[in-house]
């Protein structure tokens, strides 16, 4: 109890004291990320869904779709919209009904990562139904249910796993009108547990790893308490080919040197295989 009181009164001093021993409050060494877990098919009403957990940080992603008219400048491309929301229960700081900057920053991170990793190929032509007339608008919503630090990492994991889980219904054009598979077959055909249609072809598996900088220490995959104390954060997105698909560093009080950035990238490399495997395994378990 006394240790906890000390932590509350002198958070910086307490934090430094723990770091001197090269371990963190939750017992991890500085360079170790938290255990990651992932499951697909958690939301039965969505076209594809997934839940991702990084330690206690939890994100739930689900996809819906609508049929839209493609943009004139890209007639054979559909739309992929990504939104991240923090559920009011995510932390004591959330206020219901208010969109936070944090959620928007997190959404931008996920959006950028998905785009630059070319998850659906170099353009969105997979989402085209009929050139210039009909295309899918895929709406991917990520809800952070528990924010215990590095929420963007979990959001991206959930988003990628949910995309891998998406099955787009059969859509055909008859006399200039769109017919979606289920509408003709009626309810009987739709409810036998099988999802008819084409699975989305997800080409890459981007994984994000955030590292917090605190004085001279690098804390890989920070918890919320560590995030609050650290001066800045560096997030690195990698794909299976070892390519860097994004490095983000938000403002922060300290400048990150090249050396520090390289260390963050190395940390992400080290972690990549295990994280990607969790996502791939989750979507394979779901195949029936």
């Amino acid at each position: 109890m006394e240790a906890r009181a000390y932590e509350r009164l002198y958070p910086d001093e307490a934090f430094e004291k723990t770091l001197e021993t090269s371990t963190r409050r939750d017992g991890r060494p500085l360079g170790r990320a938290r255990a990651r877990a992932c499951a697909c098919g958690t939301a039965t009403n969505a076209l594809g869904s997934a839940l991702a957990r990084h330690g206690a940080t939890t994100a739930l992603a689900g996809a819906r779709a609508s049929v839209a008219t493609p943009r004139a400048e890209a007639p054979n491309e559909g739309f992929l919209e990504v939104r991240v929301t923090f559920a009011p229960q995510a932390s004591e700081l959330e206020r219901p009904g208010r969109e936070s900057d944090k959620a928007e920053a997190c959404a931008a991170r996920v959006r950028d990562a998905l785009t630059s990793a070319e998850v659906l190929g170099s353009d969105l032509s997979d989402l085209c139904i009929e050139r210039g007339v009909f295309a899918w608008r895929l709406m991917l919503d990520v809800v952070v249910l528990d924010d215990d630090g590095a929420a963007a990492d979990a959001a991206l994991s959930a988003a990628v796993a949910a995309l891998r889980d998406v099955v787009l219904p059969e859509a055909t054009v008859k006399r200039g009108k769109i017919v979606i598979g289920d509408e003709e077959e009626g309810v009987d055909g739709a409810d036998d547990g099988m999802r008819k249609g084409t699975p989305l072809n997800v080409r890459t598996t981007p994984v994000c790893l955030t590292t917090a900088l605190y004085k001279e220490h690098l804390l890989v995959d920070p918890t919320h308490a560590e995030e609050a104390l650290s001066e800045c954060e560096v997030s690195v997105v990698l794909t299976e080919d070892g390519m860097i698909r994004g490095v983000f560093k938000n403002g922060g009080e300290v400048e990150a040197t090249e050396d520090i950035l390289m260390k963050c990238i190395a940390a992400a490399r080290l972690q990549y295989a295990a994280s990607a495997k969790v996502i791939l395994d989750a979507s394979e378990d779901d195949d029936y």
Binding site: N45, L60, A65, S66, A68, V143
Partner: peptide, 13 residues
């Protein structure tokens, strides 16, 4: 309510 916790996941705009 998470946006995808609704019955209809698909609609035509």
């Amino acid at each position: 309510r998470v946006p995808f916790a609704r019955k209809r996941a698909i609609h035509v705009e």
